[in-house]
Nucleic acid binder design. Structure first.
Lengths: 293, 293
DNA sequence: AGCATAGTTCAGTGTTTCTTAACTATCAGT
DNA sequence: ACTGATAGTTAAGAAACACTGAACTATGCT
């Protein structure tokens, strides 16, 4: 066996990690101290001690404020992961102590909740009436953040470009994205496609759409953005612009768009925290959503 | 945003997790105390306090010994993961403080080290002469254990049947496994294949081989087992039995077997701890082994 | 210049974690 | 059955740690 590397662990505590995560998520250290339930001086001293034990500076001054250095992201990611895993363990212990099934908190992007999985969710609820089941519908980036900070147990989101540290991913499904134009417009040559009403800059799907439109030779003149597909559909109906949407979303509902031209596909994935304490109710949900696993 | 679940984190410490991992890995609590550098009574009191804070019993008596309860596996897995991630963070801090590239510890099963990746490993060493590079060759299960306890940074192993908590996996390659028989024997009908000399019961590949032989209709009369392919090859050469081995291994080397009949394929994967503090030298190794990623 | 705000330092208190010594229960050898 | 060795526990005390509230410093706004 390889000799264990002679790195002595600094004596860090979960408490200090909670302080670090709190200051990252709040505008002031006083707010952060309130949230973790200590005085501002306890938090200040605790974070100073964390820096001392790591031997690496984590904060710099911006006027009278202390802010995280860019180089501290590694420590913050670690802190966030350890706090999230500790929360999972505490919830596991609560379930064990109380012979209780606990709560299950699922996050989904809207198309998954409304179009792809409503039957499965209904089935899960029917089979597990005792589970405190909660569904959160939000864009992918928000869901990923809430997963990482142990506010969600499982999420169905658009596959991110890069691996999210501390998570495991399982392919959920592939769906098609198609181009939709106002009724008064003909498809015409690629160069004349648009103007566009699209998902916002920065979203996973927007990046994919932009890439594929450029590849096809279309210009990308964006006149409006929204996270909400219904809003984009409405804009197309009103003749305000062209859009790209999941077929399942665009061609269903109260005011469906006419059949669109397939542009590309995107993957939806199921994502969980890696290594979190097992939760049978979450495992059962996973089996309901993906029977073949 | 969902209201944060009202679970208060017990005030656990990394130290207590180190104690727990140490007692799991040593025959006695005195040995465990020695390894973590405290007295036996400190360890005893520390673990009692851990049980108290978790509110869940972790140990039971076997005579004068205390042993982990089966139900404590969840807490032990959590402890092991948090200690491993903390070790990674400490090594990250050491690299940051000392402007040092540190050590890279790679584990590989033998066929990967000897047949599939020797050129890439040589390339990596040539490009990164300053990296303290160490290669450990061992069976998959040993490699997984060492990865989980932060004794290895990256491993190439046979794809496990089930997800290993706290790890991420990337497909490395697929290789063929073929049947090899002594020269004096003809292939003949399936029912007459064997007797067999195979990898040991319990290994990933053995499970796959057994499954596929049964599917083909062969009996599985195993007369010898070994982890070492060279030993299995030698036994076939000596006429002691038939075997199933990776083609790359069986048909190369000093005394190659004659071309075998393909039975199945197995996947090799690259596995790392999920969410560990980034290490540029390990990232570089990964890029060398898998250029397209 | 004066006041408000963000965070820090100080001194004191209570808690935690370790030590050594003494102890209890179990086991092996005779 | 007895004795000595072994595995782990408990008690008491010391040192270190983590928190509090008060007083402080530096920054920012009016």
């Amino acid at each position: 066996m390889l000799h264990r590397v002679a790195t002595v662990l600094p004596d860090l505590s979960i408490r200090q990690f909670e302080y670090l995560v709190a200051v990252a998520e709040h505008p002031t250290w006083a707010d952060a101290a309130d949230q973790v339930g200590v005085s501002a001086s306890a938090l200040s001293q605790g974070l100073a001690e964390l820096e001392r034990r790591m031997g690496v500076p984590l904060f710099e001054r911006e006027g009278r404020r202390r802010v995280l250095r860019p180089g501290a992201t590694t420590v913050l990611d670690h802190a966030r992961q350890v706090v999230a895993l500790s929360t999972d363990l505490a919830r596991w212990a609560d379930r064990a102590k109380n012979a209780d099934v606990g709560a299950v908190r699922l996050g989904m992007i809207d198309v998954a909740a409304v179009h792809h999985f409503p039957d499965k969710l209904e089935e899960y609820r029917r089979i597990h009436p005792d589970v405190d089941f909660r569904l959160r519908v939000a864009p992918s980036a928000d869901l990923v953040e809430q997963l990482r900070s142990s506010q969600l147990d499982l999420i169905i989101c658009v596959e991110p470009k890069e691996e999210i540290p501390g998570t495991t991913v399982q392919h959920a499904m592939t769906e098609e994205l198609a181009i939709y134009r106002p009724d008064t417009k003909r498809l015409g040559p690629v160069e004349k496609w648009g103007p566009w009403v699209l998902f916002p800059e920065g979203s996973h799907t927007r990046a994919l759409i932009s890439h594929e439109l450029r590849r096809a030779g279309a210009s990308i003149d964006v006149v409006a953005e929204s996270h909400q597909p219904d809003v984009l559909i409405e804009m197309v109906q009103l003749g305000l612009g062209w859009t790209v949407l999941p077929v399942a979303q665009a061609e269903a509902g109260a005011r469906p768009l006419r059949r669109g031209r397939i542009l590309t596909r995107r993957n939806l994935v199921a994502m969980m925290r890696s290594g979190s304490a097992p939760d049978p109710a979450v495992a059962a949900l996973r089996s309901t959503l993906f029977p073949s696993t």
